[in-house]
Design a binder for these strands. Structure first.
Length: 939
DNA sequence: ACGGCTACGTA
DNA sequence: CGTACGTAGCCGTA
């Protein structure tokens, strides 16, 4: 029932006074789910995403709507009269994430600091407070805005009350007026609660009439005027839905009582007290410092409040902190009409002289190139030099190539103070202008990766946004907006204004240096940067630029052959299925397998259906011998899957061939894999098939290029196990490696306590799977599944294994324990990976984090060792003036292109570099092979 | 157009 | 219910 029907007094004349009423809980919920908690967590692990989102949303609404009065309503702990009516009411909200609730008091602290009144009324909900406030506003002649993500608020809407309702994106607010309610729901705001009672509200755990949504509810309301009208005529409503209505009529009546907002509470405040007043800056400062919000957040929030920037001392203080983090550079315009080289040289000299003015502990220059690289070909668009005194020059057009000497001289003179973002890509871009850059003193991309390896920004902008509190997408657009405004402002100065974007980016790099350098030192990642990442960057730049030669004709031949075979398999599958379904659609496959053919499914996918993956199909083949139609279909489908996949891989290679040099230039991503491994993209050359003959064939298309005679492939045997042996100090495992025997057979002989020559094939393969599973945190269940043995048998194997290699067991447990203690894992060389998930209360999350923490130091140490080997190998190839070169890395394998006459020497050299990259308690074993193509180089 | 999901290739 | 990746296609949502 409607508890009060207000007379509207609001009129045009009084509309200048505006009251903003905020539903505190709903806004906090929306903010929480709109922003990723992991990006908004203090160093002590307190989530701040809801606070941050709340602050920004409130600020935005205030700036956009300029209310004179503001109040925020909150729910109070403990039930309300609604729970008495409907015990399960808002039951689902108890499942609120545990890190949201503690943010509510913080939001209230913030509101107090901002001078915004917030109101709680025990026994009632925020919604009732909102209803009451809205009525108070209306009676006093205010225009009233209700900011709420709860649709119950729609019943308040009239000519003077508007609801601001967040859309799909938290940022977009819809202004809900009487008209927009009618447009969306086909009922008036007064009828809305009737509609909601019929439909129910999932978010509040309120069931409606089954099968009745907004559409039917609106139709009935328009027929009978109101819920009371519908109830009177309930018997007339036909069909299933009418029946459902009659069955649930009591529920609906109850719903209607629950969703009616109370609008006449005694809140003990006068509307005059809600006037927006100046914030308490000190309190806000303290709070924001505690929350680790940056100066930009603070200044943005303050802008929305009266006197936020009136106080000059405050203004200076705020600007100072902002400037300290970030400041767009002063772009000096050089006269390009005369001798560019000498004017750049003069500029550099001048700013070297003034560089010492800056109070940085380490004055540094930023070199920042922009451009593109594709198919191994780079195009340089601009080159920016940013001096320590924050003056910049931006060189565009043909200028960069004219100043290569200057840049080289600058780089050489300031190698100990040269910063850039992503040396590898920078070096590609600059080499397009003939500029050879030395390794920088600091690389902000690598630093960001070392400091937080789980976060990989895909651009400089994204890195700046993440690390410099330039939170969320709006920041980028606003700074871009400022730039484009500037473009309009001074039109006499085209070069300088266009130059502002690259100059701004260079300044981002400088700000990133200031932010990340202390973090890098604090987290002791400086050595990894200097000794591993920067040097390997240079090796990778060379590998990418050289590329891998392919026999394109052979690739085309394979592609066509695989395509024919896939079509053939498809035809067969269609025959058996009796219809031409899309074999690449799991949904259509499910229909054929589990509906048409009535086959029994195996495992489920996370979306509920039965999986159609290869393992499941294989199992179904075994289970359905005799069912000829099913067998034919399954076998054809498996063959289609395999050949079509191979076709796809070959096609992806063909798509990336550079037709000028006949080579494929992959990109080795150095800052993607959280463990420290490389990854390879466009195309991925680290997943070229190798496990069966048909796929391995693809490797034969990788050949030596012109001027080279063969490919050399060198790979580590069982590096990860050797790392475990070394790190655990397990004498038995160390001895297994020192003995030089067939490793898995040797281990099996220890585990099963029988002589090596009596080990069966099964025993060897079971032990081998166990050994490899160790580093993944393999469960007995998983082991059983993989070996197709019972979990009990798997458990026995595991027990025996750990009885034999006790220290390995202790070591693995120790890794997880240490990670739980410190919050991160470390490789043998100190590379860190943080694991916040270890503290999760969710078991699945925590178990996954534990497996990650077990694996990261092992996989990561192997990655470190390979990187060190690459650096050593590359240095020695140069030292010996050899033309042979590394072209690929596949985690534990290096592929080299061998120059004439160098075969023996390069094999020895690479083997040595890999075997002696580091000194462990076990030997590092490298196997090598050489041949006319990659497949033939296998060993 | 975009993102989630499924599937599958590698170490 | 084993780690780390990249790519392709489908399919529901924008």
């Amino acid at each position: 029932m409607v508890l009060s029907s207000q007379n509207t007094i609001a009129g045009e004349a009084t509309a200048e006074k505006t009251l903003l009423v905020v539903d505190g809980h709903s806004l906090a919920f929306r903010a929480y789910f709109a922003l990723p908690a992991e990006n908004f967590t203090t160093s002590s692990g307190f989530a701040t995403n809801a606070v941050w989102g709340f602050a920004n949303m409130l600020t935005r609404v205030i700036l956009d709507n300029k209310p004179t009065h503001v109040a925020v309503a909150f729910d109070v702990k403990g039930g309300t009269f609604r729970n008495e009516l409907l015990p399960q009411y808002k039951g689902t909200r108890d499942a609120a994430p545990e890190d949201l609730l503690p943010q509510i008091p913080v939001i209230q602290d913030m509101l107090r600091a901002l001078g915004v009144t917030y109101i709680e009324k025990p026994g009632f909900e925020g919604d009732d407070v909102i209803g009451t406030l809205a009525s108070m506003g209306e009676r006093s002649g205010f225009r009233t805005l209700v900011l709420s993500g709860d649709r119950d608020a729609f019943q308040l809407i009239d000519d003077s009350i508007t609801v601001l309702y967040p859309g799909h994106h938290f940022k977009d607010l819809r202004h809900m007026t009487p008209q927009s309610v009618v447009d969306k729901y086909k009922v008036t705001p007064q009828q809305y609660p009737d509609l909601a009672a019929l439909r129910g509200e999932t978010a509040d755990n309120i069931p409606g009439v089954p099968g009745v949504g907004d559409g039917f509810a609106a139709k009935w309301l328009n027929l009978y005027g109101s819920l009371d009208g519908i109830i009177e005529h309930a018997e007339e409503i036909k069909g299933k839905k009418g029946e459902a209505l009659r069955e649930n009529i009591e529920q609906v009546k109850l719903n209607r009582r629950v969703n009616a907002l109370v609008r006449d509470l005694d809140l003990g405040v006068d509307i005059g007290e809600l006037v927006l007043s100046p914030p308490n800056i000190t309190a806000l400062d303290n709070l924001f410092t505690k929350l680790e919000f940056g100066p930009r957040t603070k200044s943005r929030v303050l802008k929305a409040f009266p006197d936020g920037f009136e106080d000059e001392s405050l203004k200076a203080a705020t600007d100072d902190t902002v400037e300290d983090d970030f400041e767009d550079p002063l772009v000096d315009v050089l006269d390009g009409s005369t001798d560019v080289e000498s004017s750049v040289r003069a500029w550099v000299d001048e700013h070297i002289a003034t560089g010492a003015d800056r109070q940085d502990a380490d004055p540094f220059w930023v070199l920042h190139a922009e451009g593109t690289t594709r198919y191994g070909v780079s195009t340089l668009k601009s080159l920016t030099l940013l001096a320590p005194d924050n003056h910049a020059v931006v060189l565009e057009g043909d200028w960069p190539s004219l100043v290569s000497d200057v840049v080289a001289a600058l780089a050489a003179a300031h190698a100990d103070g040269l910063a850039m973002h992503g040396y590898k890509e920078q070096s590609h871009l600059l080499s397009a202008a003939g500029i050879e850059v030395p390794l920088p003193w600091f690389d902000t991309q690598l630093a960001g990766y070392l400091v937080e390896s789980d976060f990989h920004p895909d651009s400089l902008d994204a890195a700046a946004e993440h690390f410099l509190d330039l939170h969320v997408e709006e920041e980028e657009t606003s700074s871009q907006g400022e730039l484009s405004l500037d473009l309009d402002d001074d039109s006499d100065d085209g070069d300088a204004t266009a130059a502002k974007i690259p100059a701004h980016h260079a300044a981002c790099v400088a700000a990133l240096v200031r932010h990340l350098r202390p973090m890098t030192l604090d987290r002791k990642q400086d050595d990894i940067m200097r000794r591993i990442e920067l040097p390997v960057s240079r090796v990778l730049a060379g590998m990418e630029s050289v590329g891998a030669a392919v026999d394109e004709g052979r690739l085309i031949g394979m592609r066509d052959r695989f395509a024919t075979e896939a079509r053939d398999a498809q035809e067969q599958a269609w025959q058996a299925a009796g219809r031409r379904i899309n074999l690449q659609s799991p949904k259509q496959l499910q229909a054929v397998l589990f509906d048409d053919m009535q086959l029994r499914g195996t495992r489920k996918t996370k979306t509920g259906g039965y999986t159609t993956d290869a393992a499941a199909l294989q199992e179904m083949v075994v289970r359905n011998v005799g069912n000829e139609r099913a067998t034919t279909f399954l076998v054809a489908l498996l063959r289609h899957r395999e050949t079509n996949k191979l076709k796809q891989i070959v096609q992806s290679l063909l798509d990336e061939v550079n037709h000028d040099d006949g080579r494929i230039h992959t990109t080795f991503e150095q800052t993607v894999a959280a463990t420290g491994r490389l990854s390879s993209a466009a195309p991925n050359l680290q997943n070229i098939p190798n496990r069966n003959a048909a796929g391995r064939e693809i490797r034969s298309a990788f050949v030596p290029g012109e001027g080279f005679v063969s490919l050399l492939s060198c790979d580590y045997s069982q590096v990860e196990l050797r790392i475990m042996a070394h790190c655990s100090g397990d004498e038995s495992l160390i001895e297994a490696f020192r003995s030089g025997a067939d490793f898995h057979r040797y281990v099996a002989s220890l585990v099963y306590e029988v002589p090596m020559d009596e080990i069966t094939g099964d025993q060897r393969s079971h032990v081998k799977a166990m050994s490899y599973g160790l580093a993944y945190g393999l469960s007995t269940y998983g082991l059983a599944q993989q070996l197709k043995i019972s979990p009990a048998e798997a458990d026995v194997l595991k027990e025996k294994y750990f009885a034999t290699f006790g220290k390995v067991h202790d070591y693995l447990e120790g890794l997880v324990a240490e990670a739980k203690d410190k919050g991160y894992t470390e490789t043998m060389f100190g590379r860190r990976r943080y694991f916040p998930g270890l503290r999760s209360t969710n078991r699945r999350v925590r178990d996954a984090a534990e497996r990650g923490a077990l694996n990261a130091p092992i996989q990561g140490s192997a990655a470190d060792i390979m990187k060190l080997a690459m650096i050593k190998a590359d240095a020695e190839l140069r030292e010996h003036n050899m033309r042979s070169r590394i072209i690929l890395q596949i985690h534990d394998e290096l592929v080299l292109e061998v120059a004439p006459g160098e075969s023996e020497q390069v094999t020895v050299l690479i083997r040595d570099a890999m075997e002696h990259a580091v000194d462990l308690d076990v030997p590092l074993d490298v196997s090598t092979g050489i041949g006319d193509d990659w497949q033939l180089a296998a060993h």
